[in-house]
């Protein structure tokens, strides 16, 4: 390669490294804020004001969903398999809301340790399969 081209190549590589470094700095500075939600363990440890709106997320614990018969209110437990958080919510749940499925809730933490949600979002996993296959896997387990 002729020297001029080599020089330009090195300059470009320097530009790329600089840009990667800058991005990395921004990303690591923002890192805490880049998480969409807190897990129950993270919430349990700290003192959060009742008026602050936060997002919490985790898995819906099996058998924990209690739906009210005469209203849209629902109560369920979110777990990260270490700690749990009880969620109260009144409203329409997304289609994918289910036991053992991921969920992200937005709301505030009450002083009694329960969470009052104003929005419930369902998180879905990266697995896709036909219903028959899903049944087979369930039987095996």
């Amino acid at each position: 390669m002729n020297p001029l081209r080599k020089q330009r190549l090195y300059a470009l590589i320097a530009v790329l490294i600089g840009s990667l470094l800058a991005t990395w700095l921004v990303v690591s500075a923002l890192s805490e804020n880049m998480n969409l939600f807190y897990s129950p363990s993270e919430i349990l440890g700290v003192d959060i004001d009742e008026n602050v709106i936060i997002r919490a997320g985790g898995m819906v614990k099996q058998g924990s969903i209690e739906k009210s018969k005469d209203s849209l209110s629902v109560r369920f437990t979110v777990t990260d398999y270490q700690n749990e958080l009880i969620i109260n919510y009144e409203g329409i749940l997304p289609d994918l809301f289910d036991e053992n499925a991921g969920v992200v809730v937005r709301g505030n933490l009450k002083t009694d340790g329960t969470f009052k949600a104003i929005e419930v979002l369902a998180k879905h996993d990266e697995n896709y399969m036909p219903p028959e296959v899903a049944k087979l896997i369930e039987v095996k387990e």
Binding site: M34, L36, P94, D95, F97, L121
Partner: peptide, 12 residues
């Protein structure tokens, strides 16, 4: 919208 329950969320 039909799966998560929202059009947009500011996740990473």
């Amino acid at each position: 919208k039909p799966t998560w329950g929202t059009w947009w969320v500011w996740d990473a």
